[in-house]
């Protein structure tokens, strides 16, 4: 449906998108995930033909977005980061304009506008000027604009930014329902959003594709990286040696707890073995009460952070702040 081949975009010396390759197949919801400045919007702008790529090509159903622009653009509805709204128009006038612009046949226009307005729930605002609408409604009008003409592919650039939690849920529901009849690509830097809505996730960082898989598979990878967090009251040395004596303990880090006379432990086991019961009896035997025990699983969030952390950054930081590193690592661990 969409083929992106070796897409590169350079602005002077800065490479915003660096050799992206992927294919989008029909009938799924794709999530484009990456930190701010990763090149998400640039990529979307290139897919929709708003800007041209420095090299590489984008094919929409086999039509090149630059050479065969008119045909290729017919397949796409696009909601950019900032909804392209004319503030001096009413909602209905605006949608009429968009329908005509997208060459919707005159007979179908009115019914289509009604349907779309129902769908994004802006019917009660149809005669209001867009400049008087709240951010949430403006976003919905922008979404309506993208849906008009019922294009096969709907591309949404950060559709939920700046909305309140209730609106976010509504927009997500709407996107899910769109996914039934359309191919949807949405970008976001919020992970939970992507994992909640999308069938497939493309993670990009520094203009490169670093991972692409279903959220389930990505989480599966995350689960392999699990650990057990404990707070135990008692002598540190004694506790450490006791834990180490248990079977299947792979690694162990310990540090002084915030609570007095206690130790915080982080235990990793081989083959994801569950040692919670053994640990409990062992500590009971030694009369070291366990105050807290938690099974921590690396979330998608951690994978995201790990993937999007550029190796160059780590190197640079390593050189400049080698003294800081141990401290920083500890901090990172405690965040987990």
């Amino acid at each position: 449906m969409i083929e992106v081949k070796n897409l590169v975009k350079r602005y002077g010396n800065h490479t915003a998108v660096d050799g992206l390759n992927f294919t989008i197949e029909e009938g799924r919801i794709y999530g484009f995930l990456g930190p701010n400045g990763a090149g998400k919007s640039t990529t979307m702008n290139m897919i929709t033909g708003y800007i041209a790529s420095t090299s590489g090509e984008v094919l929409i159903n086999g039509c090149n977005i630059l050479d065969d622009a008119e045909k290729a653009k017919k397949y796409i509805g696009y909601l950019p980061e900032q909804p392209p709204l004319y503030f001096d128009m009413t909602v209905r006038e605006y949608l009429q304009f968009v329908a005509e612009l997208k060459k919707v046949p005159k007979k179908e226009r009115e019914t289509m506008i009604e349907e779309v307005m129902d769908r994004v729930k802006i019917k009660e605002m149809e005669n209001r000027l867009i400049k008087n609408l709240s951010k949430g409604y403006r976003q919905r009008v922008g979404l309506a604009q993208a849906i008009i003409g019922y294009p096969e592919i709907i591309i949404l650039d950060e559709p939920t930014v700046g909305l309140d939690p209730k609106q976010i849920i509504e927009i997500r529901e709407l996107i899910k329902s769109l996914g039934k009849n359309h191919t949807v690509i949405l970008s976001s830097h919020i992970l939970s959003e992507v994992s909640a809505v999308c069938d497939y996730v493309l993670i990009i960082a520094h203009g490169k594709l670093v991972a692409s898989d279903t959220p389930e598979n990505l989480s599966q990878k995350a689960f392999e990286d699990n650990s057990l967090e404990l707070t135990v009251k008692g002598e540190q040395e004694e506790i450490i040696s006791a834990v180490k004596s248990l079977d299947q303990v792979e690694s162990l880090t310990a540090k002084e707890s915030k609570e007095e006379g206690c130790v915080d432990l982080s235990v990793k086991t081989q083959n994801l073995a569950d040692i919670r019961e053994d640990l409990f009896y062992k500590m009971a035997e030694l009369r070291h009460p366990i105050l807290r025990m938690e099974h921590i699983r690396a979330t998608l969030e951690d994978i995201f952070l790990e993937l999007t952390e550029q190796p160059e950054d780590v190197d640079r930081r390593g050189e400049e702040e080698s003294n800081m590193e141990s401290g920083e690592e500890e901090e990172h661990e405690s965040n987990l």
């Binding site: 702008n45 929709t48 033909g49 708003y50 622009a69 008119e70 045909k71 653009k73 017919k74 796409i76 696009y78 950019p80 900032q82 392209p84 709204l85 004319y86 503030f87 968009v98 612009l101 997208k102 060459k103 604009q145």
Partner: peptide
Amino acid sequence: RLKTDQLLLTAPVK
């Protein structure tokens, strides 16, 4: 300035 050109330039018009 208002970025509405994104609508016009991504619509199927010359």
